[in-house]
Design a binder for these strands. Structure first.
Lengths: 174, 174
DNA sequence: GATTCAGGTTCCCTGAGGGAACTTAGCAGG
DNA sequence: CCTGCTAAGTTCCCTCAGGGAACCTGAATC
């Protein structure tokens, strides 16, 4: 809900952020993917204003991230569940959680563990290259203009940290 | 900058969101990790109000995500660069970008590609299990209370989509 | 018929964001 | 020496989004 809409910027981060760059939206998705589906439960769990919750849910439904579904007829009751598009935000939440665990967990350790059912172990999720499976970090990646980009000096893409560090002006002593 | 601060909630997503659940903050980090380090350049690139930019940068420095550094003495000039803590937000940005690419890229394809320098290929970054290396999704993970959690009915952790779907009330036809 | 419950809407008020002008400190040129 | 320029913020005003709480509606339950 940025005043200046980011939906038309040629950057997938900006486009995603236009929807997901809002604290309440993130937490709503966390809750929905955690199994909280009903309006009142969400409102109570989050401590969010009901007005804002209604607005966020409407936006998420409009964007195809959630769907509003009648789950009983008498009395008629609706709830919200994640679409495939919404479920894939799981990766973003995991990344956020991993970062929060790493930098904010106290001495006791992180507040939650993620168990990977396929291998049966508690996991530390990492971003991996879809091609070779090795971890991708700011240091071993670089960004290049893609086919759908308005390539040019104004185009912002997620880029190389090391390269930018190297090209960054350093102290110019006399 | 949520009115109700989330910093003390026993959930790493909420804690991370307290800082990173803001569109401008996300885009500032994208820019800094892309090589834009100076105040005016950020202001110009983002089209953000200078007041808000100053506030966000101060917060990010305070949180140890960025550091303000003098890069020349005459005249004195400062810029911002990512700390290790900040650089690790790269994973969150990648996840966001991957999601944006998948759901908002037009027919032309995504606006940018990420090249993985270690293997030399353009990559589709995926969340992988740090233990076995296989992909982690909403469907093959479950969340358990962690050592640092105030475990109890109020504790919210990122959870199992499938389980929640299974336990979710479905139509009760008469 | 009165109460409860789910799922919202409506109201008012404050405070965060947008926009633009102003400030400060150090050069740079004429 | 005076003016101008640039980087990096500040300050000011104004609007609009968020918080909080009350209200509403349809259906069931007491």
């Amino acid at each position: 809900m940025t005043r200046t809409s980011l939906a038309d910027v040629a950057c997938s981060i900006a486009r995603a952020t236009d929807l997901f760059g809002d604290a309440w939206t993130v937490l709503i998705m966390r809750d929905v993917l955690t199994g909280i589906h009903r309006f009142d439960d969400l409102a109570h769990d989050l401590g969010i204003s009901r007005k804002v919750l209604a607005a966020r849910l409407a936006r998420l439904v409009e964007e195809g991230v959630l769907e509003r579904e009648r789950y009983q007829e008498h009395p008629p009751r609706e709830h919200y569940r994640a679409t495939e598009k919404g479920a894939e935000l799981h990766a973003v939440l995991l990344a956020l959680m991993a970062w929060g665990d790493r930098w904010y967990a106290g001495e006791a350790g992180p507040p939650a563990r993620i168990r990977h059912l396929d291998c049966g172990h508690d996991t530390d999720p990492v971003m991996a290259c879809g091609h070779c499976g090795e971890p991708v970090t700011a240091d071993n990646t670089t960004a290049l203009p893609g086919p759908g980009g308005r390539t040019g000096p104004g185009t912002r893409v997620l880029g190389p940290l090391l390269a930018s560090r190297a090209s960054c002006p350093t102290r110019t002593e006399p």
